[in-house]
């Protein structure tokens, strides 16, 4: 049942670092996070790793395993061959703090830039009535566990540090989509700001965010592309633009 596992774990900080070879026992049915914990308890007492729930629910244990952005607690070791060496590194789109822990504050900054939901004036607690079909689209986006794997894999910032200031990233595009599709939110300039302030136009829909999302949120198909279409309604569609000048379309829809 037990097997011996060969690992390469990146250790270091923001100045230096290297992959270190480790050999460790592994049991049937274990996930990468179990293995890291064993390494911690037996060989590297100060190996830094972030985790919390160990059930794929909190989005803390994001790292790159064999080059792929993944949750360590959702990666079964049985997915790797007997002879394979598993390489584990921190996220590569964010500054590293130590070992497998990175500084993800970029994401919290972006969260702050998106205006919160606003209920219609005068609506009191207990009064909202919403149909299930009307909340379902937004509910999909609220499944997000903020693991930031999508942010990490998005080439717009992963490969271009300088874009960070003008690009909110897929996690926050689904947040904007969630609010724009919310049946009651009254802030109606979200399409315009998505394009002009949050950098929706940077996305070239290459879908890596969707590929890595552990919650299987269809980030591109259900949020980014619909938002691009909504932006087109407002900004790139002369017919609809004219229509909206004549009558307030939003109210009608």
């Amino acid at each position: 049942m037990a097997r011996t596992l060969k690992l390469r774990i990146w250790r270091g900080d923001d100045k230096t670092g290297a992959l270190q070879d480790v050999t460790v026992e592994a049991n049937h049915g274990e996930v990468v996070l179990d293995i890291i914990h064993r390494v911690q308890a037996t060989q590297m007492g100060d190996l830094a790793v972030r985790w919390n729930c160990k059930a794929g629910k909190c989005g803390s244990c994001s790292m790159e395993i064999n080059g792929k952005p993944r949750l360590a607690c959702m990666t079964q070791i049985s997915a790797y061959g007997e002879e394979e060496t598993i390489t584990i590194t921190p996220l590569r789109a964010f500054p590293v703090i130590k070992d497998l822990v990175t500084d993800v504050s970029y994401n919290y900054k972006k969260a702050m830039e998106i205006p919160a939901m606003e209920m219609p004036a005068g609506m009191k607690p207990g009064e909202p009535r919403m149909q299930q079909v009307d909340v379902e689209r937004s509910q999909e986006f609220r499944k997000c566990i903020e693991c930031f794997l999508c942010q990490n894999t998005c080439h717009v910032i992963r490969d271009h540090e300088e874009n960070k200031k003008s690009f909110a990233g897929p996690r926050f595009f689904i947040r904007i989509a969630e609010l724009d599709m919310h049946p009651l939110d009254i802030l109606r300039n979200r399409k315009k700001t998505a394009q002009e302030e949050h950098g929706l136009g940077f996305c070239n829909i290459t879908k890596c965010c969707t590929e890595v999302c552990p919650e299987h949120i269809k980030i591109t198909d259900n949020a980014i592309i619909p938002m691009k279409e909504r932006v087109a309604d407002e900004k790139y569609d002369p017919v609809r633009w004219l229509g909206s000048k004549i009558r307030r379309r939003e109210e009608v829809l």
Binding site: Q40, G45, D46, A48, K98, D99
Partner: peptide, 11 residues
């Protein structure tokens, strides 16, 4: 505790 203070789970 082994290691330094920086993100040290043992500590």
């Amino acid at each position: 505790v082994t290691g330094d203070r920086k993100f040290n789970p043992g500590f």
